[in-house]
């Protein structure tokens, strides 16, 4: 699967030769990414390496100076906003708004790309939203105000909204942020179990190695290494990028990376 060519006609989420500059500074330089249909691809790298910028390019929040992003072979630049929203759902971090809305309303918004302007949400929309909330273990929060939730609860609700959107491509920016260990694993196994093509920005390399089919390691706006986790998560690749010592511990059940500061 990973050996397949990254041609523009291929399925899944693909980006090729992406160049982005913000405020005159080149943030992404000749970056490529390929998530074949059904694959979960992890986007890893140190702070400021361009992970979020690449993700924003994928959902067309940023227009690249050069390069092409495609969903199942269709360039995203050519899609209408509604069409893109029906095919690609995104979980991003945003500060809570002043304007109050409940958890149920927040999740229902995921159905909005499927409804025309004057059409109300249907009974089916409500059932989809309810089952999305159940799937992330947040059904009991439905009548709470979104702004009053804890960080982890908010994250799960946002993932529920993405599920309710029923797009077959999914982008997540740090979905395990604010989550305790149990929910970190639950959220990522949930993402895997959906079978949708997903690109996930992750800080935690062990989580990334465990739940992703492939990893893309960024550093300074360039792809340093890409491939299956066993190929990327090795001391020889990670040590120069992160500037720490890396040891691999294999206890038979899982391969864990242990980090230690470099002796000066």
């Amino acid at each position: 699967m990973g050996a397949l060519a990254d041609g523009p006609g291929a399925g899944g989420i693909r980006a090729a030769d992406i160049e982005v500059s913000l405020g005159g500074r080149t943030v992404l330089d000749q970056v490529g990414l390929a998530a074949a249909t059904g694959q979960t691809v992890g986007l890893v790298g140190p702070n400021g390496s361009g992970k979020t910028t690449l993700l924003r390019t994928l959902y067309r929040s940023l227009a690249p100076r050069a390069g092409l992003v495609t969903l199942d072979g269709t360039p995203v630049a050519a899609m209408r906003p509604g069409e893109l929203a029906r095919r690609l759902s995104v979980v991003v971090q945003e500060t809570s708004p002043d304007v109050p809305s409940t958890v149920a309303e927040t999740v229902l918004l995921g159905r909005s790309p499927h409804r025309s302007a004057f059409q109300g949400y249907t009974a089916a929309d409500h059932e989809l939203a309810a089952s999305a909330l159940r799937r992330v273990g947040a059904r009991h929060l439905a009548d709470r105000m979104f702004a009053t939730l804890s960080g982890g609860e908010k994250q799960r609700v946002l993932i529920a909204r993405a599920l309710a959107q029923q797009a077959d491509h999914l982008l997540l920016d740090e979905p395990t942020n604010h989550l305790d260990v149990r929910y970190q694993h639950e959220v990522l196994s949930l993402v895997r179990s959906l079978g949708t093509t997903a690109v996930v920005v992750l800080h935690d390399l062990n989580l990334a190695a465990r739940y992703c089919d492939r990893l893309v390691l960024l550093d300074g706006g360039r792809v340093v290494c890409t491939g299956p986790p066993a190929q990327v998560c090795v001391p020889g690749v990670l040590e120069p990028v992160y500037g720490v010592r890396v040891r691999v511990v294999d206890d038979g059940a899982a391969r864990q990376l242990v980090f230690a500061p470099k002796p000066s």
Binding site: Y59, R60, S61, P81, V92, E94, S101, L109
Partner: peptide, 12 residues
């Protein structure tokens, strides 16, 4: 009213 990025990902 949630945010510009969110609006964008919902087709607005």
């Amino acid at each position: 009213s949630i945010g510009d990025e969110t609006a964008l990902t919902l087709g607005v």
